[in-house]
Simulated assay, not measured.
Amino acid sequence: MQQLQLEASWDKALSAQDRAHIEKLFNEIKQQHYSTIVFSPIREAINHRNELLITVLVHNFSPFPLTFENTPLSYSNEQEVLAEQTFTLPALTIPAKVSMPWTFIFPQGSYTPGTSLWNGRLEIQSLPEKK
């Protein structure tokens, strides 16, 4: 059964409102019968360094831990790809059957400025082969 897990720094820093929102997203999707990785959008923002911050609840429905090592992600709306970046995140491992919030940071130059970046969809372009 799918479980919600928070990384320690997230657990300490989350406001009650954000925690309730994440729990609601988790409860809406945990009963679904997925067999792969699903991203539930939480928030998009541009920070002071003009980086695009995409916060999602990552649902690892697979039977394998999910790591991000040279993992290409894209962020798109209905019409076009808005951002692309390859992520290597040694600190992020999402165990099998676990959902965890995370913010992916797309540096300036990896996304299309001047387009509406809101209400997009984050996707893994291809998962590395399991050995």
Rank of each mutant, 00 (worst) to 15 (best):
M1G: 02
M1F: 07
M1N: 03
Q2S: 05
Q2W: 05
Q3G: 03
Q3W: 06
Q3V: 09
L4D: 01
L4W: 00
L4C: 06
L6H: 06
E7M: 08
A8D: 11
S9W: 13
W10Y: 14
D11I: 08
D11R: 14
K12E: 13
K12H: 11
K12D: 07
K12V: 14
K12N: 10
A13I: 03
L14H: 01
S15K: 10
S15W: 07
A16I: 01
Q17C: 08
Q17S: 06
R19W: 07
A20Q: 03
A20W: 02
I22N: 02
E23H: 00
K24E: 13
K24V: 04
K24R: 12
L25F: 04
L25K: 08
N27A: 02
N27M: 06
N27I: 01
N27T: 06
E28G: 09
E28Q: 09
E28N: 14
K30S: 06
K30F: 00
Q32L: 04
Q32R: 10
H33V: 08
Y34G: 14
S35V: 03
F39G: 06
S40V: 05
P41F: 00
I42F: 00
R43D: 11
E44G: 13
A45S: 10
A45L: 00
I46L: 14
N47D: 15
H48S: 13
H48A: 15
H48Y: 07
R49E: 04
R49W: 03
R49H: 06
I54H: 05
I54M: 03
V56T: 03
H59F: 09
H59T: 15
F61G: 12
P63W: 05
F64C: 08
T67Y: 14
F68Y: 08
E69V: 07
E69S: 15
N70D: 13
N70Y: 01
T71D: 02
T71W: 06
L73R: 00
L73D: 12
L73S: 09
L73G: 02
S74G: 11
S74F: 14
Y75E: 09
Y75H: 08
Y75N: 04
S76L: 15
S76W: 10
E78T: 15
E78K: 05
E78H: 12
E80W: 01
E80I: 01
V81R: 03
V81F: 01
L82S: 02
L82A: 02
A83G: 12
A83V: 09
E84P: 03
E84Y: 13
Q85S: 12
T86C: 02
T88Q: 02
L89S: 01
L92I: 00
L92Y: 01
L92V: 00
T93M: 09
T93K: 08
P95E: 13
A96T: 08
K97F: 11
K97H: 15
V98S: 05
V98E: 04
S99Q: 00
W102A: 14
F104W: 01
I105M: 13
I105R: 13
F106M: 04
Q108I: 10
G109I: 00
S110K: 02
S110C: 05
Y111G: 07
Y111S: 02
Y111W: 09
Y111E: 10
T112A: 07
T112V: 12
T112E: 10
T112R: 09
P113W: 09
P113K: 04
G114T: 14
L117A: 05
W118H: 13
N119Q: 07
R121G: 01
L122I: 15
I124L: 02
Q125M: 06
S126R: 05
L127C: 10
P128C: 10
E129N: 14
K130V: 10
K130W: 03
